[in-house]
Design a protein around this nucleic acid. Structure first.
Lengths: 250, 250
DNA sequence: GTCTATATACGGATAGAC
DNA sequence: GTCTATCCGTATATAGAC
């Protein structure tokens, strides 16, 4: 059984969850939010997020002024402070929201898959596809997490190590069943993560080269399998990535 | 013949080149530098670089104020402007200097090696070792290049693509000789670069885990060879990385 | 709930003394 | 060549009108 799907199909499953994002924000930041009506809150919060990510990903969060944000959202400077208590609070809000959303969707896709070989593929593919759907969030998190206050930075690092642990666990599970051959599951998980991250960090590069997300995902999967699969398994799966550099069967 | 060395030996070869760095800066930025005496220039320029990298890598270049820089260097605010015309000029200076220095040293180590298999290993190892010696420069370049003005950003991107081309050329050279088996040399070069970069971008992670630079370099080399080497070559080299997760023969 | 106007601080850059 | 003192723009945040 092959759990891999194409990006288009994946996209249709996850784009809807924006409402859920707002609920998540509210539970963690209600003390700094003075807006009462839920409908107003949701609408403007999403505008603020969109605008903040757009501007920050262009010029950096620190360089984004409240005037920029006011102009881009259509809200006044004073009005913005009804949604967060200050820039630092906004930064934390954006990073926490991104982190929890990503983890939630990732788990939802990966957890149900049981066989280590499939699970590894699904984890890699879902991570890449998700980073495509939520590209601004991923890029922002990657670039701005280091500017958090120490306490919140620790949470961000824990999240980072968490997704790495996800890969590591799959590798060890597969190794114990004789499916994988890895020297060091922790370092292997690290390089898998590095390959996966390159997609959203260096997006300009792949755009320039006309490398699409389906192609990149299947390429990384082929690399990962070449790195991890035991000899016997590699031959069994060989035909799946042998010639197909651009496509992956559904 | 094995061209790989340990990090300690590598370090002794390259730490000296700080003077050369200053000469490089001067040729590109003399129009903005009012200092005449070479000795004063060199001494203070290096102080400024050290300080700017330290502060920026902690809080970001944008967040570093001239007052911060003044305090850290011991120079006055006014005095600083004898070495560069403004913050933007300083940013450009730091990035250009890092880029050219890195390329110079990388070429010096990689170019003399002719056999593709050795060349690939040396390229990977040198890149990782160099990023260890010049860690603040690499990290700064990685994080701040996006804040350059468009014209200079193009140069930075070109540099990035240049080192990737270095890997790609080695791969194609080796492929044409039947030493490597790679589906897509460009994408393979990309993921190699991603693995190499993880060392200096996520340094905190490896420090926490007590993974040293020799260990990381040899691990990445083993991954790269597993990804690239043709079946025949892989068996020939198997003993070099089979059990040794931490060391690489000199 | 959202706006305009403003308080207050901090930023980069420079003028002019030594 | 380097320092001190200062200019002036822009930043965040808030007070109070509507």
């Amino acid at each position: 059984m092959n759990h891999l799907i194409r990006f288009k199909a994946f996209q249709q499953q996850v784009t809807l969850s924006r409402r859920e994002i707002c609920r998540e924000v509210f539970t963690h930041h209600k003390k700094n939010i003075t807006i009462k009506r839920e409908k107003t809150l949701d609408k403007n919060l999403l505008r603020i997020f969109d605008a903040a990510l757009t501007i920050s990903n262009r010029k950096g969060f620190k360089a984004m002024s409240m005037r920029d944000l006011s102009r881009e959202t259509g809200l006044s400077m004073g009005g913005l402070y009804a949604y967060f208590s200050g820039k630092e609070d906004l930064l934390e809000m954006l990073l926490r929201t991104g982190r929890t959303t990503i983890q939630r969707i990732l788990s939802a896709h990966v957890d149900p898959v049981l066989h280590p070989v499939s699970k590894l593929r699904v984890a890699v593919q879902t991570h890449i596809f998700l980073s495509e759907v939520l590209q601004p969030w991923f890029y922002f998190s990657y670039m701005e997490a280091r500017h958090l206050a120490p306490a919140h930075k620790a949470e961000a690092k824990a999240g980072e190590l968490g997704t790495e642990k996800l890969f590591q666990d799959i590798l060890e599970q597969g190794r114990s069943k004789g499916l994988f051959e890895v020297l060091d599951s922790l370092l292997t998980a690290s390089v898998i993560k590095a390959m996966v991250q390159d997609w959203y960090v260096k997006r300009w590069k792949y755009a320039k080269r006309n490398v699409g997300v389906d192609q990149y995902a299947s390429f990384v999967i082929s690399c990962v399998e070449r790195l991890c699969l035991a000899q016997s398994e590699r031959q069994a799966h060989a035909e799946l990535y042998a010639g197909a550099s651009g496509t992956m069967v559904e």
